[in-house]
Each structure stands twice: as structure tokens, then as C-alpha cells.
């Protein structure tokens, strides 16, 4: 056989067998074996097509690991929580983003999609179990959330139909004719008698603004109701630092706005897909009858039968409280100057 004939057959072999073997061998074995640290490839499909693959991974404490997320079908966003502060942003189809990190204590974390990617977007989550190599089967038990535990102890039914027995959309018990102005409330604050307990932020978290409005009415009988509403709005929007609110706004936009709407109108692009119409936080009359701690519990635990997912495995309690504080700003027309 001529030399060039041999060369041609070798070329065919290299193309038909060598090329696939080299490419697949590199991608699925050599690349991983040669990496300085463990690399975990995670493919992101829309939840209707399976979500994350794999959707559960285990890493060891203090083990440097690289997570590579590839969007396989539509644009996804990937964030890791709670408390990791990792947000990879958008990943377009066919693109890959990666993060290298080291977990310093055992626990359970979540990687999740934070870009609306389909009707079941909120189901798109995966779990990272960080284990102690010395006790690989021993993961820290999930601690009950003290706020939720207190609500249960108090007998508050978190899943009650938006308490007061009134469904969202029914005529509100409280009539608020114009959006409350917290800025105006700040100027009126000094001229209004405030019951001592109302000044306590912790007390306010467990009482709805409507209740405080009633207290203010009793102690300020001459004041117009609109003024008192503005003062209440001021009280409920003045405790959080602007940068915390900004971070909460980002969390809200990525995780809540798809259903609840970017301005809290309950009219996000996915609003029509949920079992129950999403709450409109921008509706002051509705929101003024809510308690912060119940909102907190609802965010962390989710809402039974409403398609409201749980975010307790994604956000820290601090992030959740910040999110609640942000919700109070949605029905308010003008915020006060930061204190």
C-alpha cells in the first residue's frame, strides 16, 4: 500500500474515531482530572425539561470546588444561597459561567435560577450538601425559624386566607384614598402623639399598620385620617438602611417581580400562571392589614395552595427581613430622607 494511502486511512481514523474520542475524553475526563480543584458541571434546563442536572451535589468542608453552570435551553440566572452572596447573573443558552468557592462549615445550600425561565421557574433549584469528611452522614439539622415558631405559638395561621378572612381583591376594610406619603409622614411625625409601643420596631413587626392607625386615631382625634396614614407609612419605611433596601429591591426584582410585578401591582408576567392571583403589595389598603412577621413567614415558608414558593432555603433571615421592609415601600408614593 502506498504511503499516501496509509496516511489517508490514518487521517480517516483520526477524524472518525480520534476526533470524537479526543473531544469527549478531554471534556468528560481529562479536563476534570487535570483541574487544580474539583470541577462540577451543572446543566441548567427549564424546569419543564428537568431543571438543574445534577440537582444535588455533595462537597466537603474546606474543599475548593468550581461549579460550572451551562444554560442549555433558555436564559437562566444562577444564584447561590443562603448567605453566600453569589449571583452569577444571566446565562444565555449555550453559555457557561463558573464560580470557585470553598465552604467553611457543614450545611445545606441551594443553587437556584433567579431569572424567569418558564411557568415552573421557581422549582428550578438544586442542593449543595456540605459535609464534614470526618462525619459525612452528619449534616446540621435544620433549625426552626424562631419567627415562624412564635407565630405558630401565638396561634397565627400563616396560610389563613390573608387573615381577616378577606380575600385579596375584596373591598378593603380600610379606605386609603391616595398613596401614602412617608415623606409627608416624616414632617407630621413630631405633631402626632405616638403610643410608646408603636415606637418599638420589634412591636411593629408583629402588628399590622391598620392596627396602629386605629391607635393613632384614638390618641389624635383631631388629626385627619390621611395625615395619620402618612405617619404610619413613615413608621413602616424608616427603619432600614438605603443600601439594604437597594439589595432587597434587587432580590425582589429577581425573585418576586415575575409574579408580583416590578412595582408590586400583582401583575408580573407570570401572574396568570399561579393557582391564586399574586398579592399586589402596591395596594396600600391591602398591605396595611398585613403583619411584617407574617409576610416574613410567608416568604420563608411559602404559601400553601397559592404557588408562592418558599425562599427560606435561598435567603438568610436578614435578607428576608430586608425584603419585607422593601415590600412596605411599594405602596408608598414618597419615601422619607434616610435617617
Amino acid at each position: 500500500m502506498e504511503r499516501r494511502e496509509v496516511a489517508a486511512w490514518v487521517a480517516v481514523g483520526l477524524i472518525v474515531i480520534g476526533l470524537p474520542s479526543a473531544v469527549l475524553g478531554y471534556q468528560h475526563w481529562l479536563r476534570l482530572a487535570a483541574a487544580e480543584q474539583r470541577v462540577i458541571d451543572i446543566q441548567a434546563y427549564a424546569p419543564e425539561r428537568g431543571g438543574f442536572a445534577p440537582d444535588a451535589i455533595r462537597v466537603a468542608v474546606n474543599e475548593p470546588v468550581t461549579l460550572r453552570f451551562a444554560a442549555m435551553d433558555v436564559t437562566h440566572g444562577v444564584a447561590l444561597g443562603p448567605g453566600l452572596g453569589v449571583d452569577l447573573g444571566h446565562i444565555d443558552p449555550g453559555k457557561v459561567k463558573e464560580i470557585s468557592l470553598t465552604f467553611d462549615r457543614p450545611g445545606t445550600y441551594t443553587y437556584y435560577c433567579n431569572t424567569w425561565c418558564g411557568p415552573d421557574h421557581w422549582r428550578m433549584r438544586g442542593t449543595i450538601q456540605v459535609i464534614d469528611p470526618a462525619n459525612p452522614d452528619l449534616l446540621p439539622a435544620a433549625q426552626p425559624d424562631p419567627v415562624i415558631a412564635a407565630l405558630i405559638a401565638e396561634g397565627v395561621d400563616i396560610d389563613a386566607q390573608h387573615d381577616a378572612g378577606r380575600k385579596h381583591g375584596d373591598a378593603p376594610a380600610l379606605i386609603i384614598e391616595r398613596p401614602p406619603s412617608a415623606q409627608r409622614g416624616a414632617t407630621l411625625f413630631g405633631s402626632v402623639t405616638i403610643p410608646p409601643e408603636v415606637s418599638d420596631p420589634a412591636w411593629r413587626r408583629s402588628h399590622p399598620p391598620a392596627h396602629v392607625l386605629e391607635l393613632l386615631r384614638q390618641t389624635n382625634r383631631q388629626a385627619p385620617q390621611a395625615d395619620l396614614i402618612d405617619v404610619v407609612a413613615y413608621l413602616w419605611t424608616t427603619d432600614t438602611a438605603p443600601e439594604t433596601l437597594a439589595a432587597a429591591e434587587s432580590l425582589y426584582n429577581k425573585n418576586c417581580a415575575a409574579c408580583h410585578g416590578q412595582t408590586g401591582g400583582g401583575d408580573g408576567p407570570a401572574a396568570g400562571t399561579t393557582a391564586e392571583k399574586p398579592v399586589a403589595f402596591a395596594d396600600a389598603a391591602y398591605l396595611f392589614e398585613r403583619r411584617s412577621d407574617v409576610l416574613y413567614a410567608k416568604i420563608r415558608r411559602g404559601g400553601m395552595g397559592t404557588d408562592m414558593p418558599n425562599f427560606g432555603t435561598l435567603f438568610t433571615p436578614e435578607e428576608t427581613w430586608a425584603l419585607v421592609e422593601y415590600l412596605w415601600t411599594l405602596p408608598v408614593s414618597a419615601l422619607p430622607e434616610p435617617r
Partner: peptide
């Protein structure tokens, strides 16, 4: 062209399902 063709088949079967990136 066979090399390119093989790569096209390989990327189709093993690569991203996102057509614009395949």
C-alpha cells in the same frame, strides 16, 4: 470536509441544545 462534518455531528449529539451556540 469530513472532519468538519464529523465535528458537526458530534456537536449536534454531545453539545449544547441551544442552536445559536452549537
Amino acid at each position: 470536509t469530513l472532519a468538519v462534518f464529523t465535528l458537526a455531528i458530534l456537536t449536534g449529539l454531545a453539545g449544547t441544545p441551544a442552536g445559536s451556540r452549537n
